[in-house]
Design a protein around this nucleic acid. Structure first.
Length: 833
DNA sequence: GGTGGCGTTTTACC
DNA sequence: ACAGGTAAAACGCCACC
């Protein structure tokens, strides 16, 4: 039969590990596949251990047993194998045992002096299985096996599972490109208290991608006539019945994916807590099991056989760095991806709702699930693509961070290099790495403030990634520094770079990490090209391209990340240093060839064309690319009609990471300015945006100045609506942990006093109000008010701390002193002094 | 007890 | 739990009057 594996789980039977995969066949039937695989770990031997000694070790460990309450784990066999570890040839013992969970204690028992390292016991059984059997998630297979039909094998697993077929796998063969339309249900709960354990679940909405659309609720107002409720509403008796009914629907529909938004942290734990309270079973699993929660700071909820997805988590790692949205609220994310938005609904406690208010509430609840379902449809190609590229199941792919994604990719590709996996760092290792001094990072050129015309911008494609590949920078290729090496490696065989006052060396013989990254970058290029060439958009190909792009961009950060298996601070430092060297070289070339560099940051260079035209610039680009090392490549980011760079607030130097460009079509590219910062009020941001836009399109300040004066007048006459003055700042940690009590901390305290639940991660909104007593209240935080608090805004604050700083430096480039205009004085020229 | 100056903390961006 | 670089606001603290 044809089969696509979706949900991976494992169980023990007769003390051995079995994998249980649930997926679908091509007819849409639910299928469960049982399989097992070799379980082993590696003991890497020291160099030149004799055969006799090896035999002695084997004899010493082959009778090793790990006694556990529920099982005894034994060594099954031991092989001697030639492998690579961190690029070096090693002889290793492949020690097969009966249970993966006991590999760690076995490793601890291997205390022979000839054994150098123990590896391969900390991958997690599912990852180990996928590597071992190459039965990869989210890919179609032609499979063959023995049907289990009320069989007693595996403790009667098939009869306990709610699937159409259950079989023991004999063989599997990948099939190319077969379409898969998953069955998806999005869900969302509404409660009358936000805190888990303190309120009741009022209603649950369910929306599928095949027509299901429901709100289940036990809340109806007595004076409401039920026939007036929308058709999609289904009433139940009470909260307990609500949960039972929800479970019944999910189990009956048996979707592949149950999708929520922040559902790992809210909906699922809430459901669990309420079901415990009412002593009803939340048996969402196909094996009748309840959701399992992984402990740790970040809750994650796993339902057996039905993959539970918290879309928020996937969005955070896969998209957020490329998104415009300032928060990851469902509302804003839906607006960005779907152009849709949440139905406005003022949340009130359920006791305050009456009559037809409830209908609005139902609609609102349903709409949230509709949004989640649509978002899922949009993101599904990426989820599938990520799962296939990284080779981890969808449950993991949708929750992992970038470092985990990179690491999984590496682990699943080690075999091509005959590599034994490196271990996870232990706590002392991590602690030590975290305390190592930071290394020097990117190069940022200080711009000369001014208004420039006729510009171009180049940037390095996958900059750091291409440096890692071109200079072969990784843990396994790092040779050491001049301070510790007895013999300095030659230029023929190594790359060298200065960083932190020493010279460090990397082998030229390609290492497996740069080689893998090279593959990633090439694949990305390949898919991108294919996409550009085809007339129709292929979401699956686009997704693959996206996955490779994300991986390529995260590799550098991964090597410098303290939690990484393949952590290598030197490789990360060298990457930054080589990138710096290359971009400086490129700037030199640009200036030597008749252009004039204005600004550069990390991997991009903005310059004036001067007397050259666009065609000549592109020809120059081709030429410079011929001189770049390895796979490094510059590309054109764009041509621009005009651009502005300003001074810092202190006014003495050019401000870095802050500029605005406009192209011939009038499209703006604004970086770093307050316009793009969410912790500035709307008024200041939109004014700055307008001013930038007017100056860049006109090339002079007349319109911008007139407009600014209008805004100033509005502020002075208290004519600005409060919502335009709201400042939004994220609360990054619990209130008690703040050493400096800034305005947003005060606002957060006020919210708690007003019974508005907030916690770390929330956006805090407030405005600065006029002080009652003008003489006192010097500090900004003493004038903080929440939007719901009555009061007038503080004119001085908004003029001097929001409006003025937003436009001052921009006008200053055009020699206009906006400060004088704000303070109401007439313009003075130097001549007046 | 207020003020100026400078360092520190904090956020958000590149 | 990817990295470092940078601007800027506001607080915190101390010397000083």
């Amino acid at each position: 039969m044809k089969f696509i594996p979706l949900d991976y789980d494992y169980f023990d039977f007769n003390s051995k590990n079995y994998i249980r995969i649930i997926g679908r066949d091509d007819k849409g039937k639910r299928v469960c596949v049982i399989d097992d695989c070799d379980v082993y770990l590696w003991a890497i031997l020291k160099q030149d251990v004799s055969d006799k000694e090896i035999q002695k070790i084997i004899n010493g460990i082959k009778h090793l047993e790990i006694e556990k309450k529920e099982r005894t784990t034994k060594i099954e066999k031991i092989e001697v194998v030639n492998k690579n570890f961190l690029g070096k040839r090693v002889t290793a013992l492949k020690i097969f045992a009966t249970n993966y969970k006991d590999l760690h204690p076995i490793a601890s028992e291997l205390d022979f002096i000839e054994i150098d390292k123990r590896r391969g016991y900390d991958l997690g059984f599912i990852t180990h299985y996928i590597i071992e059997k190459k039965f990869r998630p989210s890919v179609w297979y032609e499979i063959e096996g023995d049907l289990l039909n009320n069989s007693l094998e595996f403790g009667g697993i098939d009869s306990a599972l709610d699937v159409d077929f259950c079989l023991k796998l004999n063989s599997h063969k990948e099939i190319l490109e077969q379409k898969f339309n998953p069955k998806v249900i999005a869900y969302d709960i509404e409660t009358d208290e936000f805190k888990i354990g303190e309120g009741e679940i009022l209603m649950i909405s369910l929306v599928s991608n095949y027509g299901l659309k429901k709100v289940i609720t036990w809340k109806k107002n007595e004076d409401e006539e039920p026939e007036k409720a929308p058709k999609f509403v289904e009433y139940v008796k009470d909260e307990a019945e609500l949960i039972e009914h929800f479970v019944k629907i999910i189990r009956k529909e048996s979707p592949d994916f149950l999708v929520g938004y922040y559902s790992d942290g809210f909906d699922m734990p809430y459901l669990k807590s309420r079901s415990e309270k009412h002593k009803v079973k939340l048996s969402l699993g196909l094996d009748d099991s309840q959701p399992r929660f992984t402990r740790g700071i970040n809750l994650s909820a796993r339902t057996s056989g039905i993959v539970h997805i918290d879309l928020l988590k996937f969005i955070r790692t896969a998209y957020s760095q490329y998104m415009q949205s300032e928060t990851l609220s469902l509302n804003e994310v839906a607006r960005e991806f779907l152009g849709d938005k949440k139905i406005e609904f003022k949340h009130r406690h359920s006791s305050k709702l009456k009559g037809l208010d409830w209908n609005e509430y139902y609609e609102y609840n349903l709409h949230d699930s509709t949004l989640v379902a649509s978002l899922f449809e949009k993101m599904w190609p990426d989820i599938l693509g990520f799962s296939r590229v990284i080779q981890e199941p969808i449950h993991e792919i949708t929750r992992n961070g970038l470092s985990k994604d990179v690491e999984s990719y590496i682990l699943h590709n080690l075999e091509k290099f005959n590599e034994i996996p490196e271990k996870r760092p232990n706590n002392p290792d991590v602690a030590e790495r975290r305390h190592i001094e930071k290394y020097e990072g990117a190069f940022v050129l200080e711009p000369t403030p001014g208004l420039y015309e006729n510009l171009a911008m180049f940037d390095f494609t996958s900059s750091y990634g291409s440096v890692i590949v071109s200079y072969n920078l990784s843990k396994s290729t790092f040779l050491g520094s001049n301070k510790e090496l007895k013999k300095i490696p030659s230029n023929e065989t190594s790359y060298s770079i200065e960083t932190g006052g020493e010279t460090i060396y990397f082998d030229k013989k390609p290492g497996f990490i740069p080689e893998m990254l090279k593959q990633i970058i090439e694949s990305r290029k390949h898919y991108k090209k294919e996409l550009a060439a085809s007339k129709t958009d292929d979401p699956i190909k686009r997704a693959r391209s996206n996955a490779y792009k994300l991986l390529a961009n995260a590799y550098y950060g991964y090597q410098g990340f303290f939690g990484a298996r393949y952590y290598c601070r030197e490789a990360a430092a060298a990457t930054a240093a080589f990138a710096k060297k290359e971009i400086k070289k490129a700037i030199e070339q640009i200036d030597k060839n008749g252009f004039k560099t204005i600004y550069s940051d990390t991997d991009s260079i903005a310059f004036e064309l001067k007397n050259k035209n666009e065609k000549q610039t592109l020809e120059f680009l081709k030429e410079i690319n011929k001189t770049l090392p390895g796979i490094m490549e510059l590309e054109l980011e764009g041509f621009f009609k005009r651009g502005i760079w300003v001074t810092t607030r202190a006014g003495t130097t050019g401000a870095k990471k802050k500029y605005a460009l406009i192209n011939k079509e009038g499209k703006l590219k604004i970086r770093g300015f307050e316009t793009v910062r969410r912790d500035w009020c709307k008024l200041a941001r939109s004014l700055q945006n307008k001013v930038i836009q007017m100056i860049l399109s006109d090339g002079n300040y007349e319109h911008a100045l007139t407009y600014t004066k209008e805004i100033i007048t509005k502020i002075k006459t208290h004519d600005v609506p409060k919502e335009d003055l709201i400042i939004r700042t994220q609360l990054k940690k619990p209130i008690s942990e703040y050493k400096a009590i800034s305005p947003h901390v005060i606002a957060a305290q006020k919210m708690i006093e007003a019974n508005i639940p907030i916690s770390a991660g929330n956006l805090i909104e407030y405005y600065i109000a006029e002080p009652k007593d003008k003489s006192k209240k010097k500090l900004v935080r003493e004038r903080v008010k929440l939007q719901i608090e009555p009061g007038e805004y503080d004119i001085d604050y908004y003029l001097n701390n929001q409006i003025l700083p937003a436009v001052e430096n921009i006008f200053q480039v055009l020699k206009i002193d906006i400060k004088q205009i704000i303070s109401g004085k007439t313009q003075t020229t130097l001549g007046d002094f």
